[in-house]
């Protein structure tokens, strides 16, 4: 059966996302749009993963946990894990690799950590917008060693992508690559191409979800489908 997946979404913790992007609303809204496997991937941080995990459990969503790392090459890469605790630890490590620059709220927006009800628990004062001191190659190695998955984000975008910043997609053990438009004409070395909503606003949720062919909605089925290119796009 076809199972809706969306592996690229932001919450109110990401400086560029809307403050009403509560992790709980993300899970709820995605579930209403028939997505069964959903990831939260804030910029360089995983501080809203606990609320997201709780919300996923409440709405019967298979949560995938991680962040969108801005590497030293200023390339955006999704680092994803099955386990929320492993993901949280890894995301704190990524945060520790960021330059200590204070966020400027009126330019970049707020960076709020919330609970499942949307109550603000903390405002992150260090800018999450910077580049973490980790290379693409190092990130792929470290995440894979922890049992996670790396998916280069929006490889066909003209900013913060492998194609734009490096000029090519290095042939590394990614679980898949994410493109905004399919079919994607970038050389991806046979990797599975997925789409992701990169939702920063509630109305973005599900806009570029895609589907896997699997018997059940769970993390191993996702990994298997990505490895076997068992992917369908919207409208296909």
């Amino acid at each position: 059966m076809r199972i809706g997946i969306d592996l690229h979404n932001h919450s109110c913790l990401s400086p560029c996302a809307h403050q009403n992007m509560l992790p709980s609303l993300l899970a709820l809204e995605a579930s209403e749009r028939d997505i069964k496997i959903l990831a939260l991937t804030d910029h360089n941080s995983g501080r809203n993963l606990p609320a997201f995990a709780e919300a996923c459990e409440m709405v019967g969503m298979v949560g995938v946990f991680g962040c969108e790392v801005n590497t030293i090459e200023e390339v955006h890469m999704l680092a994803l894990f099955e386990d929320v605790h492993v993901a949280s630890d890894f995301c704190f490590y990524i945060e520790s690799l960021l330059p200590r620059i204070r966020n400027v709220i009126n330019i970049f927006g707020q960076q709020t950590v919330v609970d499942i009800r949307g109550k603000i628990l903390e405002e992150v004062t260090t800018s999450l917008y910077g580049a973490a001191n980790i290379s693409v190659d190092q990130l792929v190695n470290q995440v894979n060693n922890l049992g996670g998955m790396v998916i280069p984000a929006h490889i066909d975008r003209l900013a913060n992508s492998l194609t734009a910043n490096l000029g090519f997609v290095p042939d590394l053990p990614y679980a898949a690559v994410e493109a905004i438009r399919v079919p994607c004409h970038v050389e991806v070395h046979g990797k599975t191409v997925i789409q992701g909503s990169d939702a920063h606003y509630l109305e973005h949720i599900g806009r570029r979800c895609c589907y896997i062919d699997a018997d059940e909605a769970n993390y191993p089925a996702l990994v298997n489908a990505l490895a076997n290119s068992a992917i369908f796009y919207r409208g296909s």
Partner: peptide, 9 residues
């Protein structure tokens, strides 16, 4: 850009 992809380019 101090990483090996610079060498590739």
């Amino acid at each position: 850009q101090a990483h090996k992809n610079t060498v590739a380019v």
